[in-house]
Design a protein around this nucleic acid. Structure first.
Lengths: 99, 99
DNA sequence: GGAAAGGTCCTACTTGTATCGTACCTGTGG
DNA sequence: CCACAGGTACGATACAAGTAGGACCTTTCC
């Protein structure tokens, strides 16, 4: 019974989004996700950041709160994917600016 | 003899730009500047931020370092203006996303 | 010349945030 | 059943960043 953590009752807010993207590691996550047109689910682990798993978890929490990703909880792993449509609707062109 | 402080030997860097725009007050400055199509010079003071002048000065320094504005020093006041072309060239559409 | 206005520099404070250690939870697979 | 891998929660730490006080500079204007 996978549990969806899509996080967004409210709208995405520009300040929160920019804060989230201001961090180099989080930006790298988003860039990697944006680069895959199939929007396949990824695990947190698969991004191979040079950080502890606790810190990585923290960054995903921040991205989730900003509304940039959604997360499906499979118990022993997370299914991470980009909220591409929501981002493109609210902030058209934003993803292209990141690289 | 006004002195130009255009600040940018290097290119604008996405991380620095996003950090600069992540702050609410600095974003407000940029939004106000972007809203004026004539790109007329403004003084720091003219933005009427609810902050001390030292803090306002600090924010302009940050925006300058990020390459988002240029600044002409008239001695007893600064001529602030948006580096609209540079921004639009490097990050097309960015200004529109801010509001 | 002196006061006032617009800004900066330096310093200090305080808040925020990125990081990680320890503990703990949940499926997977031998 | 149990070890292991992927993640989270909580707490501590350390560094970054927003903020303002005091002193000082430059130009304008009376």
């Amino acid at each position: 019974m996978p549990e969806l953590l899509t996080a967004q009752p409210h709208e995405m807010e520009i300040g929160q989004v920019l804060k989230a993207l201001a961090d180099e590691h989080r930006r790298r996550i988003i860039v990697e996700l944006a680069a895959d047109p199939s929007d396949a689910e990824r695990t947190c682990n698969s991004f191979e950041l040079p950080l502890s798993k606790q810190t990585v978890s923290h960054h995903f929490k921040t991205l989730l709160a900003a509304g940039l990703i959604k997360q499906v909880n499979y118990g022993n792993r997370q299914g991470i994917s980009l909220r591409r449509d929501a981002i493109e609707t609210k902030f058209p062109g934003l993803l292209d600016l990141l690289r």
